[in-house]
């Protein structure tokens, strides 16, 4: 479903000149799989996911989602994905229902189909009580629910979660992880970026550990543990980062 090949993103910085935010990133994820991008802040996770959501363009390399190229077929790609990030906020002056309905219509759903779909989602995500609440009056958890509903209203085959649990309390974070797991079970291909190891351990089928724009290690959790002879993911992560920092 997701095929990323040699994805590179450089940007120009006034002080440092050309800076590589991503360097030759290569990975692929399949349907029914949660692919985790693990890395500290500034590792390039958000840049990679923004490229996949077609908000950014890569400097070189390709990213194919559902058979469509992120650079040359961005509108087709956006039909295939649902994107949830700490940067994708909800509208303050729209109610939860209006917001999800708006995006549903943008995705091209017809009235009956959309209504049916929204009723299901609002029920499933327990959003009935915030149905007519304006975004400005919602708590962080409520907003996150609306974001999820907005991202899956068109039932996309690919979902991208970029540090989606940031700022959520334990209860809401757990509910979100449950939702992700459920979506995976439905056959969705999920790209999940986080810097919280427990989330990765709980959800991810495969992970890529990123640092300074490139992948340090990639594979299933068991493969990584075996390769690096370390059972604890967090410790493994620290070792890889430390080794990388020493070598550079």
């Amino acid at each position: 479903m997701i095929d990323v090949r040699s994805l590179t993103k450089a940007y120009s910085d006034l002080t440092r000149g050309e800076v590589l935010a991503l360097s030759q990133l290569t990975f692929s994820a399949k349907a029914g799989q949660v692919y985790g991008l693990l890395g500290p802040n500034g590792a390039g996770k958000t840049t990679a996911l923004r490229i996949l959501s077609t908000v950014l363009q890569p400097t070189s390399g390709t990213a194919i989602i559902g058979g469509f190229d992120c650079v040359t077929q961005p509108e087709m790609v956006r039909h295939q994905i649902g994107f949830i990030s700490a940067n994708t906020a909800v509208y303050d002056r729209m109610t939860a229902w209006e917001m999800v309905e708006y995006f549903g219509r943008l995705y091209g759903l017809d009235d009956d189909e959309l209504r049916e779909r929204m009723e299901l989602l609002f029920e499933r995500l327990q959003m009935q009580e915030i149905r007519d609440l304006l975004g400005a009056k919602m708590s962080t958890g409520m907003k996150q629910k609306v974001s999820i509903a907005r991202a899956i209203v068109h039932d996309p085959p690919v979902l991208i979660f970029d540090e989606a649990t940031t700022g959520l309390d334990v209860l809401v974070a757990r509910a979100l992880l449950d939702t992700v797991a459920e979506l995976r079970d439905q056959g969705k291909c999920i790209l999940f970026s986080t810097h919280i190891m427990r989330e990765a351990e709980r959800l991810c089928d495969r992970v890529a550990i990123m640092h300074r724009g490139h992948i340090l290690a990639e594979g299933t959790l068991d493969e990584l543990r075996d390769q690096h002879a370390e059972r604890d993911l967090e410790e493994l992560f620290f070792q890889l980062i430390r080794r990388e920092m020493v070598s550079t």
Partner: peptide, 11 residues
């Protein structure tokens, strides 16, 4: 308000 990215990632 952070809603521009939401809209940009829509179809």
């Amino acid at each position: 308000r952070g809603t521009l990215e939401t809209l940009l990632s829509s179809p």
